[in-house]
Design a protein around this nucleic acid. Structure first.
Lengths: 114, 114
DNA sequence: TGCGATATGTCGTATAACGACATATTATGA
DNA sequence: TCATAATATGTCGTTATACGACATATCGCA
């Protein structure tokens, strides 16, 4: 049986992209802007990272293409993506890993306050 | 001014090695075992990862060599390492990054429980 | 008309994790 | 005593991926 945990950890870029799509489906540029806002400006994805990650995530089936409603008017070359079921599982597993890591650090760092 | 945040994120392997050394100075093999225990068996560092990381961490001055007390008796080829001041700063910064990421995920994932 | 924002992509480089391989010592139990 | 497991450190090649630089096109607006 293949569990989501086997794919962890995912990179920060991948995590933030998945997290952005967890809220709603978006196209690449919107993900870029959302990740920047989401991280309070700390993370600015370069286009190399973004589109490379999107293509990888599609291959892995963690995200899926969504056909834009209203394709007639205002049809730019935008491509919309959404999180797949599998992607949501991975995101949840990675979130737990992050929580666990943060909790471990809190404990160990508290031990040594002397 | 160079702040610890500029080096983030650090890899999971690096983070766990630093966290292990935050408790007390250790030699490589002991770090390996501690990381395994610390992560409840989830992370088993390969020696390639471990010794590669240690050598890099020394270069970056995030860790330092410690001369073993009692070098006469029981002197194996063990090399002991400790966390440097800079290393502790990086570890603290990375812990905060992890907390922030985990908190972000908690919020977004809670939004979409419907 | 031109510029900034929106939008997508490729390419080359650098970093680092990882498994496989190599080697040596120490402790233990059959 | 002899083999085996645990302790201990290291190198090498492969692979994954982040990132900056470059390239291109459209849209809205002043």
């Amino acid at each position: 049986m293949e569990t989501s945990q086997e794919h962890l950890p995912v990179s920060e870029a991948t995590f933030l992209i998945l997290l952005s799509l967890a809220q709603e489906s978006r196209h690449g540029y919107a993900i870029m802007k959302d990740v920047e806002a989401l991280s309070q400006g700390r993370v600015s994805l370069s286009t190399g990272t973004l589109y490379g990650a999107l293509s990888r995530l599609l291959d892995q089936r963690w995200i899926e293409r969504v056909e834009d409603e209203l394709p007639e008017q205002s049809s730019r070359t935008r491509k919309r993506y959404r999180l797949s079921e599998q992607g949501r599982h991975v995101l949840q597993a990675e979130s737990q890993r992050l929580e666990q890591l943060a909790a471990m650090a809190r404990l160990r760092l508290a031990e040594n306050l002397s």
